[in-house]
Design a protein around this nucleic acid. Structure first.
Length: 886
RNA sequence: GCGAAAGUGGCGGAAUUGGCAGACGCGCUGGACUUAGGAUCCAGUGGCCCAAAGCCGUGUGGGUUCGAGUCCCACCUUUCGCACCA
């Protein structure tokens, strides 16, 4: 094949250097590297370097010292106990970035802490008849050891754990500040109740109508609970997304959808029998001439009056009760249902009477809980109208002017944009939809029957939980004074530890007399403490501020220092927090800004979401998960004994028995191998399938780097004489690699950064194998530096072996010399009508315009420079090849 | 249903701005060294073909272009997110 031959020609050109001699029989094995006097045994060296880093406190940083600050942060984990290689991806990735920035000379802060409150600890305590605290603390210790064994450098002098009073005191303080400003309130609302976990949940914690944590069906209950008024910040949280240039679009979109900003209008419809108006919210006020009926949520406050004298009142009330008791999921699945109230409202534009219905598809929490129905132009209204035989009226037509007839409609025609034109709509007739909306809002406002409005889907954040293991809400109920906040000087309200865990009848805090009974801070009369605790997402909504001054017992944080170190420059964590944690953290940061405590509103400048690691799991016919140890393979299919199994690739989880614990892996190959493999496996933001076989590739790579280093250190490399020049190809490759890896580190392209290092290592290995030819050591040391973020232990050991004193970590990241990246010559191949016409070798700096004019003039030719680094292919229609060095 | 992202060898994945498709690695095949090798090293490895020559190849069908994995149109598939939000 032409192309292949061409490539070979190019690769073997003189001066290319380092290319192995061809031919199986002719190949001689240079003993420069083999046989090996010193094996790569990671487990001999890794703990040693972990200890050295710890002893030297290399990762501790003085936040008051000057420097080019950089705040790196991995989302602090829930201390659930054992970490598997899937968790490792997150932390290994963060550590690689941290080490890279350190080598770039940045004053990089990389703290770690524990999101230590929460249900699993409580459930474990119930199961094991212990207390959540020792369980949690033991897990923390285990996980710290695992982090260390991965070679991850956190600044442990900044460690925090949210379950400690020193931390949650400030949670309570924050709550009191919010309460003072009216941003924390107690209110009664239909809330999500998880019967399994015996607690209420935030809307964000309900997924597909089920509890995010335990998957139980969530029930609706009318309860009095604590809320944070995140809705006050809906507009800012929405607008702020536009400023987050370095956040994944996906996350911003998810937040935008969750906030659910809608522009529209509130409009009053008079109801003569009520003697007042019912207000509706609509995003399509331009369709108001087509509003032929009105639908209220069954929960709407005016419903009892409307149906008070209805002959079938009891039946309707029964239906309302049924709907109210349904979960959101059941309510939707039961289809559209409604009841006619027997009453009428007046459409303010057509001035006709329109019937008022109740409908289960109208949600009480959104808008005004009442809608004007325009069946011709809204699919939901259309379905409802068809079902109950309600009238329709077409008020929007296509701009193209095609006639529409009500009887022809098989579905609603929405025409959301300029493609639609108002029809039969008084003053807005013939206006396009956007213009019609603008105009009708003007008229509505002139008439004083409503106004243009912005509505949000976002609802207030329900933060109270009827569970023990969380931050006590610092409020007191006094019969005389009502709700009384705990005075700040009495904080923290400590969580009592002498509590039995039976797992029965709700929150054990409520039965702790010494905790509950308290004197009212205002009147000193006997009073009762709030026994609800806070959602743990409150704990994590501001923890990144606490890392700067974790031990300050006098204030939540130091504003001046926080303003210096924050926003967090690089935040790393899973996509599962796209809405919950990240929205709450943004909200709380805004409130602290408004309190004058911060000079910024957005806490995280750059956000990165790593993908999950998946692995095959095996299920038997009954759907139970089978341990991979029991699986036998026959004809490429999995079996357990005679029983066929099904294989499914899923996220690693204990329940699916597909987790890969790092211990065995590290014992066999070392942490560096796991680190390199984990980052090499796939682009870090993508889901990646773990392959036990694939790990060996990373190990071999490190082994080759190791053996090369041993050879150089023992003087078997050319360094012994310290003379001569490294082959030009090695120097060139070094600069190309430095350039490539640096860019890829910045862009989080770790998989290709590592592949570039593998290529460089191969080039270097060939040069060493071939007996070198000069100064290979400089190139090798550059390789060690570039490799350090991925394989910190091996590179430190090799660095030392070569006689260097300081850590690789504290050296400077190499800088590429662009001039030396260039090839000294390039081969230009010329293709004419698909055939290789010839090739010309030219010195790289001389690749200029007229080189080929004489040779290939007057032909339709295709020409390109064969080395990608220099120039691209260029098409020249007939006359002149015009090549330019980039 | 709505929204977003993605479809490239046996597998994970490469391929600035359209310019040598399959880098790098796994696996596989052959070899070296070995008592042995599931260690290590070397070579080969997109498909058709004994091989060469040649032809075909980035989900499918069109289009733009000297040139398309990349750009445009239509479709198919997968994954993720939202899901009666008026």
């Amino acid at each position: 094949m032409e192309r292949r031959r061409l490539r070979r020609l190019v690769r073997r050109r003189p001066g290319g250097g380092g290319v192995s001699p061809p031919g199986a029989s002719g190949r001689t094995h240079t003993p420069a590297i083999l046989p090996l006097p010193m094996q790569y045994l990671p487990n001999d060296i890794e703990p040693k370097w972990q200890k050295k880093w710890a002893d030297a406190r290399v990762s501790e940083i003085d936040v008051t010292a000057p420097g080019d600050k950089l705040y790196m942060l991995n989302m602090f984990p829930y201390p659930s106990g054992d970490l598997h290689v899937g968790h490792g991806r997150n932390y290994i990735l963060g550590d690689a970035v941290y080490r890279y920035f350190r080598m770039q000379g940045r004053a990089a802060l990389n703290p770690m802490g524990w999101d230590a409150f929460g249900l699993p600890a409580e459930n474990a305590a119930i199961k094991n008849q212990t207390h959540p605290r020792p369980w949690t603390l033991a897990n923390i210790e285990r996980m710290k050891k695992q982090f260390a064994r991965w070679g991850i450098l956190y600044d442990w002098s900044k460690e925090i754990a949210s379950c400690e009073p020193e931390y949650y005191k400030w949670n309570q303080w924050l709550f009191l500040q919010l309460y003072k400003r009216g941003l924390a309130y107690r209110g009664t609302a239909p809330v999500n109740w998880c019967p399994q976990d015996q607690t209420v949940l935030a809307n964000e914690q309900v997924v597909d109508g089920r509890c995010e944590r335990c998957r139980a069906l969530v029930e609706q209950r009318e309860l009095s609970q604590w809320f944070l008024k995140i809705t006050d910040y809906a507009d800012r949280l929405d607008a702020g997304l536009d400023t987050l240039e370095h956040w994944p679009e996906k996350v911003k979109l998810m937040q935008r959808n969750w906030i659910g900003k809608s522009l529209g209008a509130d409009v009053d419809f008079q109801v003569p029998v009520l003697g007042k108006a019912l207000r509706v919210f609509t995003t399509r006020p331009d369709t108001i001439y087509g509003a032929t009926f009105m639908v209220l949520a069954p929960e709407h406050p005016d419903v009892p009056v409307l149906i008070g004298d209805h002959p079938d009142r009891e039946e309707i009330e029964g239906w309302i009760t049924t709907v109210r008791n349904q979960s959101a999921l059941e309510r939707q699945e039961s289809g559209k249902e409604g009841r006619f109230t027997g009453k009428y409202a007046v459409n303010p534009f057509t001035e006709t009477e329109i019937p008022i219905w109740l409908g289960n598809f109208v949600l009480p929490q959104y808008g005004t809980g009442a809608i004007m129905s325009v069946p011709a132009h809204d699919q939901r209204d259309f379905e409802f109208a068809k079902q109950y035989g309600l009238p329709m009226r077409i008020v929007v037509g296509p701009a193209s002017g095609v006639w529409l007839d009500v009887n022809d409609l098989a579905e609603a025609f929405t025409f959301k944009d300029e493609t639609g034109v108002s029809v039969d709509s008084g003053p807005i007739t013939e206006l396009t939809v956007p213009k019609a909306i603008e105009k009708i809002i003007e008229i509505i406002e002139e008439k004083g029957i409503g106004k243009g409005t912005v509505r949000y889907r976002l609802r207030d954040w329900l933060i109270s939980r009827q569970r023990y293991w969380g931050t006590p809400i610092p409020m007191i109920y006094c019969e005389q004074c009502g709700l009384v906040p705990v005075p700040e000087e009495q904080l923290p309200v400590e969580l009592p530890l002498d509590v039995p865990f039976t797992g029965r009848q709700g929150n054990p805090l409520a039965k702790h007399e010494a905790f509950v009974n308290v004197a009212c801070p205002q009147c000193n009369a006997p009073a009762r403490r709030e026994t609800d605790t806070m959602d743990t997402f409150v704990d994590s909504s501001w923890y990144f501020l606490r890392f700067i001054t974790p031990d300050d017992s006098t204030k939540i944080f130091d504003s001046a220092l926080v303003d210096r170190w924050l926003p967090v420059d690089q935040y790393i964590g899973g996509i599962e927090h796209a809405i919950l944690h990240l929205l709450y953290a943004r909200f709380i940061t805004c409130t602290l800004h408004d309190m004058g405590l911060l000079n910024f509103e957005e806490p995280f400048t750059r956000l990165f979401n790593q993908g999950v690691i998946t692995k095959e799991g095996y299920q038997d016919a009954s759907g139970s998960w089978v341990s991979p140890r029991e699986v036998e393979w026959r004809d490429g299919k999995p079996f357990r004994g005679e029983e066929p199994l099904t294989a499914e690739v899923t996220k690693m989880s204990k329940s699916r028995l597909n987790v890969v614990p790092p211990d065995e892996l590290i014992a066999k190959f070392g942490a560096d191998t796991e680190r390199v493999y984990t980052l090499f496996i796939a682009p870090p933001e993508k889901e990646a399938a773990w392959s036990d076989e694939g790990v060996i590739g990373a190990y071999r790579f490190l082994g080759r780097v190791w053996h090369m280093g041993v050879a150089l250190a023992e003087g078997r490399g050319p360094r012994a004489e310290g003379r001569g020049e490294a082959p030009a190809a090695v120097v060139r490759k070094m600069h190309q690699t430095i350039d490539a890896v640096t860019g890829r580190m910045e862009r989080f392209e770790f998989n290709t950064a590592i592949s570039a290092l593998m290529e460089f290592s191969n080039t270097l290995g060939e040069a060493v194998n071939a007996g070198g030819g000069g100064e290979l050591r400089e190139a090798y040391e550059a390789l060690l530096k570039l490799l350090h973020p991925f394989a910190p232990h091996a590179t430190e050991e090799l660095w030392e072996m070569l006689g260097n004193e300081a850590f690789v970590l504290t050296t400077q990241w190499p800088v590429a010399d662009r001039a030396l990246m260039q090839e000294d010559s390039v081969t230009i191949a010329v293709q004419v009508n698909g055939k290789l016409r010839g090739q010309v070798e030219v010195p790289a700096p001389a690749v200029e315009a007229t080189v080929f004019e004489a040779v290939f003039a007057n032909e339709k030719i295709r020409a390109w420079v064969t080395d990608k680094q220099i120039v691209k292919q260029i098409y020249v229609p007939g006359k002149l090849v015009n090549l330019v060095v980039k």
